[in-house]
Design a protein around this nucleic acid. Structure first.
Lengths: 129, 129
DNA sequence: GACTAACTACGAAAGATTTCGTTGACCGTA
DNA sequence: TACGGTCAACGAAATCTTTCGTAGTTAGTC
């Protein structure tokens, strides 16, 4: 017991998770440097967020080095699916088809992307058959 | 000028917007009653939220009656697309195809839904051609 | 007119999120 | 050993979100 479900990451937390997914396990310094391209939070801000994320269980921390090394607890895709499921419930009345179609209409997806999506659909229907 | 972009609605605000989309223009009382099925916020909580939403520009208010009548400023679909675009940027690196495919894989969509999505794809590609 | 019911307005409080300054610990090197 | 740089920890503040109690207003009824 005690395995509380991982909470939905906030905006700032999600930005940090994205760095961890891309870079793999990283120190606060590395995450801060990566974020500084797009965000301008200070070093201690990122540190504090990552400490909070450790408390929440969003990341794990290896303290064996002086500069602690953080890793995302859940994979990128699992987190993305969780966020989508959450949005589906909150904004789309739980209908996945509505969500997908709105996403398509909003996306201005390129022909290549539409093609990739179609192939993915084919694959899903094969598996279903 | 002065037309600030409408901010992303919070969770509680989105629940209220959903009622307004479904019911059309409504009083606080009506929204509160509709929400009470799933939420248990008090009347004044809903009132306060709707006043804040008026300040933010998320809803408009008709004060000609004693019980003010509120309407969602933006349509359901436009808001949904905004939320999806936001999530796409924050969690999917701006890739609509990744978002759609994750949504499909998470959705356990039925065959009917898959079919509807495919038809929608057909339609999009026709328009593109 | 007095009473009651329904409503808005206001302010405050609790909680969550984001920010960062300061402090003290640690490490390498001069 | 002292100095300079890097780091984690802590606490506090600013903002945003959500909550609701209280007060005052309006409308209808007896």
């Amino acid at each position: 017991m005690g395995d509380k479900p991982i909470p939905r990451p906030t905006d700032a937390e999600l930005a940090i998770l994205r760095v961890l997914w891309e870079r793999g396990p990283s120190t606060v310094r590395e995450v801060h440097d990566a974020l500084s391209a797009t965000h301008d939070s200070g070093y201690t801000t990122v540190l504090k967020l990552m400490q909070i994320m450790t408390d929440k269980g969003l990341v794990t921390r290896d303290e064996s080095q002086r500069a602690h090394v953080y890793s995302s607890r859940e994979g990128e895709q699992k987190t993305q699916r969780q966020l989508l499921g959450d949005l589906m419930d909150r904004a789309f009345g739980g209908s996945p088809a509505k969500l997908v179609m709105q996403a398509l209409s909003a996306s201005r997806a390129s022909s290549e992307e539409l093609h990739a999506i179609r192939q993915y659909l084919d694959q899903m229907e094969e598996e279903k058959a």
